[in-house]
Design a protein around this nucleic acid. Sequence first.
DNA 1: TCGGATTCCATTGACGCCCATGAGGTCCCA
DNA 2: TGGGACCTCATGGGCGTCAATGGAATCCGA
Lengths: 153, 153
Amino acid sequence: MAGFVSHYTNRLDAKGRVSVPAPFRQALVRDGFEGLYCFPSPHHPAIDAGGNQLVAQIEKRLLGVATLTEDHDALSTAFYGASETLKIDGDGRVMLSEEQRHYACLDNQVTFVGQGYKFQIWEPERFKAHRADAMKRAMDVLAQQSAKAAGAA
Amino acid sequence: MAGFVSHYTNRLDAKGRVSVPAPFRQALVRDGFEGLYCFPSPHHPAIDAGGNQLVAQIEKRLLGVATLTEDHDALSTAFYGASETLKIDGDGRVMLSEEQRHYACLDNQVTFVGQGYKFQIWEPERFKAHRADAMKRAMDVLAQQSAKAAGAA
DNA sequence: TCGGATTCCATTGACGCCCATGAGGTCCCA
DNA sequence: TGGGACCTCATGGGCGTCAATGGAATCCGA
């Protein structure tokens, strides 16, 4: 494992720059990815970001859908078309585009949330609210898994 | 097995550091995990902590859910995003974050409670109160199991 | 030539690492 | 069997390093 773990909140400066948390940068280096692959999260007002592991998951998902279909078009547009590859400068910072800042409602602070093979970029307050929901949903999913396991046994 | 057993109470110093009980450290070494993996307990005002065994349980749960879905995002946010990997310094201490201290209401003493594959970090008084409840609940669970076994037999 | 973007540099504050101290327990030997 | 040396572990504090941040300087396209 040892992908993106934990969460960090950093400041977005006047130029739109923000430091990528050092542990995440190290994970990207281990991952062998130059820069930062990101696209708007399909489910939340947040940015999904990562490196080769993330790209690999996207490819895997696309393999499950026949090409030249409308579904495949939609997925590839969402994951490839809407994406951007940000450059990480010498000090470990990236410049978020106006579009990204708007989509995730980013103001002057941003929260990086590790999700293993990828991480998300949130506006801190929104994340706090979302976190409670995610917790609840996660517990539901686990309960369902347990129920299924018990039923199968 | 011989994972984390028994309980210990140590002091939290002005810097927010606390010594991990030596037996727990030894268990972590045997487990082969560098540092301490922890996240807020979903059920109690306490911190769940452990090493590879704990991480393995989490990964196992995540494997059952497709990536890039809302369910997977929720689970990984709950378990990866909310977690932190603390470094254990040369003297066997970890630094608890402000957030962790707040979540578990930690003041100047903390109690480590072994739970086999993981352990919990509690505020001593709260743990004392929780312990009675946990005992009662444990009795109920045991009774239910016995009833089920008797019914099945 | 102007504006935006990239690179470089300086500051500061948190964290990691080191050493010192002291309490408690164990082992060895008289 | 009692005393003492030794060891382990918890705890407190000091200091160096690195990451985050703000700003200046330079480069490039419009």
